[in-house]
């Protein structure tokens, strides 16, 4: 199988600025994290709040100024779907603009081709043409997340990092978006690094899962295997919490 992402011995710490009253502190957030992600695979990352999931996503995307270890991509331009869709969409711009901008940056397509791609992608995420002129403030939470998915996928990435893409949505919308993500994966042969604090959500979408506790990956395995025979006590705890 094609390897699409390789992470080796990743260590990340945040240094909080010292003040007159507080000493400078170094907090280790990721500890010796190593894993591989293969083409077409959906890899889940679960863990409690503050365990370091978003930090790992940022390291994979190259958004961290400093880290130790290696992150190797075997594909250009991984894309991301953020947890909070409202701040991920530019409030001053329309849906059409937001979807066209990535295509303009890559600069390979002429105007009719851009329009064709935008309309096709909009349809795939279940929105009609009339949404092109809407501003983000005129969309519901689920619609925002659809636009965000469309903008991420329009440049045809092979790897998508999704950081809790459904946790800001209510349950019925969650199910719709998860279905959409599964469908897009099948259609475009995407690989996901899918982050969640909810084992159930991961179960619905992923083939494999990593369990993270306090910055360390404590268990990795096929999703069914982990659900049926969790080895680590923290994994058991997460499964129980999900039921």
């Amino acid at each position: 199988m094609d390897k699409i992402l390789e992470v080796r011995d990743l260590n990340v710490s945040y240094t909080t600025e010292g003040t007159l009253f507080r000493k400078k502190e170094v907090q280790k957030v990721l500890k010796d994290v190593s894993f591989d992600l293969y083409a077409g695979e959906a890899l889940g990352l679960v863990g409690g709040s503050g365990s370091g999931k978003t930090t790992l996503a940022r390291a994979v995307l190259g958004l961290l100024p400093r880290y130790e270890g290696t992150v190797t991509h075997y594909t250009p331009r991984p894309q991301v779907i953020f947890q909070d869709p409202s701040s991920a969409l530019n409030p001053a711009r329309t849906v059409g603009w937001i979807m066209e901008e990535p295509l303009l940056i890559h600069g390979k397509y002429d105007a009719p081709e851009r329009r064709r791609r935008i309309l096709a992608m909009l349809e795939q995420v279940g929105l009609s043409e009339e949404y092109l002129d809407r501003h983000p403030s005129e969309l519901s939470g689920g619609q925002k997340q659809r636009v965000l998915i469309a903008a991420a996928l329009i440049v045809r990435p092979r790897l998508v990092v999704a950081d809790e893409p459904v946790s800001a949505l209510d349950v019925t919308i969650q199910a719709q978006i998860l279905k959409l993500l599964a469908e897009m994966r099948r259609r475009h042969g995407l690989s996901y690094l899918f982050i969640s604090h909810d084992m159930n959500v991961v179960y619905q979408l992923c083939d494999r899962v990593m369990v993270m506790q306090e910055g360390r990956i404590v268990e990795t395995g096929a999703i069914d295997e982990i659900f049926q025979h969790p080895k680590h006590p923290y994994t058991r705890q997460l499964i129980e919490a999900a039921n």
Partner: peptide
């Protein structure tokens, strides 16, 4: 804001 981070990821 996240939309600026996204733009950066898209190569802007």
């Amino acid at each position: 804001q996240n939309y600026v981070k996204l733009a950066r990821l898209q190569g802007a």
